[in-house]
């Protein structure tokens, strides 16, 4: 925007875009991931995401990892534009590297990183060039569990369970019913699988290959991907057009 010459750029378009502008913005995402879900459990945080990468409505990639470790105490999960997520991971790598280089016994916790991401996301939306993601940040530091989310325009909050995209509509009602403070790891995984199964049936971008991650005070694990058992041979599926007759 700053590079365009006043002579060639029409004044009324100068703020948004002009044909010879050097700056490009994400006006619409290209490769996207769908929901991520996170919840607090007895010892820490659990997160789950599937590994699909959609190119528009085509599920183009099926092994995209969308949960990563950040520093010693945090996990990040992302839905939305995959390349923007990769850029965010680069920012976080720099941040954590600098933090480690001090080597002074201080370290960034999940709350610090969440707040940093909020600033980054809101700053980019103010430049009309958002990072097209909804993020979930979870972690444990000094016995304190933390779970928060931030979206592409910088709206953020903390909760005991969070979800992005379709997960917000389909998974969170389940979590509101079934979440407890003292959930064990196995119970937590069971609830997450229930949520993912619902999403798999109803969200056309969801893929049956998912990864669970956990973080506790002294352990971070991103487990290998696996598939859920599903049942599609229900009577209602046998002749789908029977209950929806068309005009032809």
């Amino acid at each position: 925007m700053m590079m365009e010459s006043p002579a060639s750029a029409p004044v009324e378009n100068s703020l948004l875009a002009s044909p010879d502008s050097a700056i490009q913005r994400t006006k619409t995402p290209y490769v996207t991931g769908t929901s991520v879900i996170g919840l607090k459990y007895k010892d820490g945080i659990l997160m789950v995401a599937d590994m699909g990468g959609s190119y528009g409505s085509t599920i183009r990639y099926k092994s995209v990892q969308r949960i990563e470790k950040v520093g010693k105490h945090s996990l990040i999960g992302a839905s939305g534009e995959i390349s923007d997520f990769q850029e965010i991971l680069r920012y976080l790598d720099d941040l954590v590297l600098n933090d480690n280089m001090w080597d002074d016994g201080n370290s960034l916790g999940p709350k610090d990183i969440h707040n940093y991401l909020v600033r980054v996301m809101y700053n980019r939306r103010n430049k009309f060039n958002p990072l097209w993601n909804n993020l979930i940040l979870g972690g444990v530091k000094n016995g304190q569990k933390y779970l928060g989310t931030v979206n592409m325009i910088g709206v953020h909050y903390e909760d005991n369970h969070v979800a992005t995209g379709f997960g917000n509509h389909l998974a969170r009602p389940i979590l509101r019913d079934e979440w407890r403070e003292d959930l064990s790891f196995e119970e937590g995984v069971k609830i997450l699988e229930k949520c993912m199964r619902v999403l798999l049936y109803r969200d056309r971008s969801a893929v049956n290959k998912l990864q669970i991650a956990k973080i506790t005070e002294d352990d971070v694990q991103i487990y290998p991907p696996y598939a859920l058992k599903t049942v599609w041979n229900l009577a209602a599926f046998q002749n789908p057009s029977a209950s929806a007759p068309g005009s032809w």
Partner: peptide
Amino acid sequence: SYTYESPLPVGR
């Protein structure tokens, strides 16, 4: 504290 919502370590 604006960026990280936490206090700046003294040594830094």
